[in-house]
Write a protein that binds this DNA or RNA. Sequence first.
RNA 1: GUCCCUGUAGCAUAAUGGAUAAUGCACUGGCCUCCUAAGCCGGAGACUCUAGGUUCAAUUCCUAGCAGGGAUACCA
Length: 584
Amino acid sequence: MKQHIYQLFTQALVAIKNKNIVTMEATVDYRVERTKDAQYGDFACNIAMLLAKSARMAPRKLAEQIVTHLPPSEFITKIEIAGPGFINLFLSPQAYHTVIKDILAKNDTYGISQIGAGKSVIIEFVSANPTGPLHVGHGRGAAYGSALANLLTVASFNVFREYYVNDAGRQMDILAVSVWLRYLELCGETIPFPANGYQGDYIWDIAASLHREHKDTLYYPTAQIYEQIPPDSDAGGDKEKHIDALIQQAKKLLGEVAYRHVFREGIDSILNDINQDLQQFGVEYDQWFRESTLTTSQTVQTAIEQLTQAGHTYRQEGALWFRSSQFGDEKDRVLIRENGQFTYFASDIAYHFNKLKRGSAHLINIWGADHHGYIERVKASITALGENAERLTILLVQFATLYRGQERLQMSTRSGQFVTLRELREEVGCDAARFFYTQRKSEQHLDFDLELAKSQSIDNPVYYIQYAHARIASVFRQLSDRQLQWDVKQADLTRLDTSHEYNLLVTLARYSETIENAAHAYAPHQITNYLQTLAQDFHTYYNAHTFLVEEEALRHARLSLIAAVQQVLRNGLKILGISAPEVM
RNA sequence: GUCCCUGUAGCAUAAUGGAUAAUGCACUGGCCUCCUAAGCCGGAGACUCUAGGUUCAAUUCCUAGCAGGGAUACCA
C-alpha cells in the first residue's frame, strides 16, 4: 500500500514537472509515512514541504498542485492538506479488508519482505569463551542475535548463524590445569588451588567425569607437581607466572597425549553444556567455528603472509607488527609475539579472512560493548587484505548490569561468581527472559534486576502478548463447542466498521512495514513494541465486542479479523523466539 | 588524555528529521449473571540534561559542555 501511494506521488511529480510548475532538475527524497493520529488519515506525504523552496511556492500551495495531479486510486477516499503542508491520505475500508485475506492466505509466511533479496549474510553472535557456562551477560547477545537472525530471515536474507569458539590460547590451558588440579583433589591430594585458575563449581563436575574415565592414571603427588613452581599471589608471588609454570608442569608430567585428554575433557564438556543451554534458550547455530582450525589449516599464516607481502607488517623488538594505524586504528598491533605465538588478534584476522572468502555478501558480528576498541583494527585488517571493510557490520550490545535488589552483582568467570543463563531461565522462564532482553534496543544499557524480573514475571508484558494469542485460541474453542462454523468466504468484511476494528486493521497492515523497518535498523525490539500494540488493540476489541454473535456474516467477519490477529502474533513471536501458547 | 554507548513523567523504556512526544510499572476512580479480569475504560503525571548550530520542521543530525556506564595489552 505504501509502495502504491509512493508511486502515485512519483507520477504526480512528473506531471507537475512537465507543466513547469517545478523545475525539471528538482529531485527530492520524499517520504510516504504512516500517520500518528487517525485525524490525519492513514498515510501522509511530505513532498510539498521539501519541494517548496526549489519551486518558490508556499508549501500548501504546492501541495494543492500536487494533489490535483495525483492519479486516482480506488483505495483512496479523501485527500487533505494540513499543517505546514502535509498531504494526508485517507484509505477506503476495502484497502484494509485485503489485509485480512492476505494474512489468512499466507499464514506463517505472512510478513515476509523481499528487502534482503536472498543476499547471504553470516551472523556471528555469543561466541563466549568456552571456559565456563553462559551467564546472564551472554543471554542478551544470544536473545538479540537469534532474534536478529530470525528477523533477517523473514526479510529474505539468506542467514547463516555462527558461533566462534576460542579453543586456542592460554586460557584453554588454564582451564585444563584447573580441571586437572580438581581431579587430583578427587584423588585425595590437597592442592593449593591457583588464584588465577577457574574456581567455579562446574570444574568439579568435569574433574569428576575425568576421574570416572581415567581413574587414578593421571595422578601425580602434589609435592612433585609443585616442585620448582614459583609462588602464587597469596604467597607474595606473581599469579600469572605461577599458573604458566603449572601449565608447563602439567604438559611435562602428563605428556602430550594425556594432557590432550584433560584439555579435551574440559572444552568438550563446556561446549556441550553451552550448546544445550543455547538450544533450550531457543538458539540454534549452523556452524560452530573453532579457532584452532585456523592454525591447523594455515589460515592464520596465509593471512599474515598476505599482509606482509602487501607491505603492511614490520618487525620490532622480536615481534611482528601490523601497521593498522595506517588504516584508521589508533596504534599498530602485534600479530606474532616475541615468543613466537600468534596473538588473539592474528586469529581474528584469519577468521574474518576466512568468512570473507566464503562468498557471503555481508558479515554481521554481535559483540559485547567492551570489544568496541576492536572494531577499528579488525576493519583495518580487512582493508589491508584488499577487501571492502563495509562488508562487515559490527553491532555492539551494551552490558547488562546485574542486580539482586539493591545489590550489584559482580560477574567473573574466573572467580566462579556469576548467575548462569540456565539459572535465569529456571527462575523467570525462557519466554520472559527472551522478552526482557529484546525489549530494548541493543545500544541501551540494561539493568537486569533478578528480583524484579522474578517478581514481575506475572505481569511481565510478554504474558500480555501471549495472552492475546491464547484468548483468540479460546474463542475458536468456544466456537466448536457451540458447534458453530467459521469461514472467511462467508464473511462480510464491510461489517468491520467500528473504531476498534479500524484500529486493529491498521495495526495489522503495519506489520510488514514494521518488519522492514526493524530489519533495516537491525532492531528486533521494534517487533516487540509492535506486538504489544497489536495485543493491546486486540484486548480492547475483545472487551468492547462479542465475536460469537448470531448473525453469520458479522460473525464470520469478526472471526476472520481475530484469526488474522492471532496469525500475526504468532509470526511476530516466532521472530523473537517466544512461544505462542494456545492456553494460559 | 583519547574512543564508544546512554541522558525523555517518580521508575523502566519507545518514537526511518515531521503534526498534540508513545508504552508499561507505580499512583488514582470505575468494569466480571457476559467468548479466560494475566483483561478493559477513565484520571493525574514531561520546557525530551544544558548552551549553541543546520532545517519550513530536531527527542532524532552537527559543535561544545555536564552527568552515568564501558573501552583503552606482545590477555583471551
